[in-house]
């Protein structure tokens, strides 16, 4: 189905470069060129495949491959199908794709969230603001190289007296059991050092 759809997109939209990524495990997807997102989305909604509902716009950061991938997950309620449409953006370059709000109103909040979390700009969005983080927040949290902020305005983030030290101690105490350590990479305080008291 994905191969047919990819050739259908290529035949209708010039330079769309649609490629079907057939997966052995999980879901297959279709990658398209980032310049043609709007045209392809319009085609998919109005064309014969009738993807009338936009489920999610989401993104994922791949620093090793120097790209940020934006996924559009579409669904058709008339034909009962689902599609993951992807486009890759150059991480260092211009992170801009065309907004699809005029095609689906659902894109409004979804694009704002993608901008908020990954810093992808949507050209032509009517209300291009952050949505979950405060408007003056710095950095884009879901990028892999994001360093958690230490303070916001005059507030300390994750102050020591509010941290769950008990959890850390529990983790250290049970570190000898395989797979029992708590995963706390992002805490600003190191794990308590192993002492005799803890090992008993």
């Amino acid at each position: 189905m994905h191969n047919e759809l990819a050739s259908y997109i290529n035949s209708q939209v010039t330079d769309a470069n649609a490629v079907a990524n057939i997966a052995e495990v999980g879901d297959s997807s279709i990658s398209i060129s980032s310049a043609k997102v709007y045209d392809v989305c319009k085609l998919l909604r109005d064309g014969e495949y009738e993807y009338n509902v936009l489920q999610v716009i989401t993104g994922c950061d791949y620093p090793d491959e120097n790209k940020i991938e934006v996924s559009y997950i579409l669904a058709s309620y008339t034909k009962n199908t689902e599609l993951i449409l992807k486009t890759a953006l150059d991480r260092e370059g211009d992170l801009t794709v065309a907004s699809v709000v005029s095609i689906w109103s659902a894109a409004n909040f979804q694009e704002r969230e993608t901008y908020d979390m990954l810093g992808v700009n949507f050209d032509g969005h009517p209300d291009h603001r952050r949505i979950l983080c405060p408007e003056d927040w710095e950095g884009f949290p879901l990028r892999k190289d994001y360093v958690p902020a230490e303070s916001y305005k005059d507030m300390t983030i994750n102050p020591v007296h509010k941290m769950n030290i008990g959890e850390r101690e529990f983790g250290a105490k049970h570190a000898h059991i395989k797979g029992a350590t708590t995963s706390v990479k992002n805490y600003s305080v190191d794990a308590p050092e192993e002492s005799e008291e803890l090992n008993n």
Binding site: A23, D27, Q55, V56, I73, E82, K178, G179
Partner: peptide
Amino acid sequence: KIVKVPKGEIYLRTECPRGELGYHLIS
């Protein structure tokens, strides 16, 4: 005991009381 999900992605939605809840998982 240690779960390792094969490389790939999946989007699955289920019918929750408030509507469809979907998970897009990339491994």
